[in-house]
Amino acid sequence: MADNWVDACAADAVDEEDVMGFSHGGQNYAIYRSPEDKFYATDGLCTHEQVELADGLVMGDIIECPMHNGRFNYKTGEAKGAPVCVNLKTYPTKVESGRVLINLG
């Protein structure tokens, strides 16, 4: 994957075990802060019906879509069963100078 690190948000803008949305180049992304205080990033829309995951609920390793209970492991992108059948794309992240960066490749 090519390096294309993009500044997404301030690290302290995302609560632990929570998610926030981020848009870049017309695409939506979701930035997660895990209970272990690590950052992860995925595509921002649920693969089921394109609902914003940033409005969803983070429970441990899981992001739950706010509309239909679709669940993904946000660390791996794995869809965890109906109604989501297609995995979520994930992106590498790093934190520098208090900012979360994601590699869009």
Partner: peptide, 13 residues
């Protein structure tokens, strides 16, 4: 269970 799970998903969409 499955038909109605998906039916209700559509009802909410």
């Amino acid at each position: 269970p499955e038909v109605w799970r998906w039916s209700h998903t559509r009802h909410h969409t």
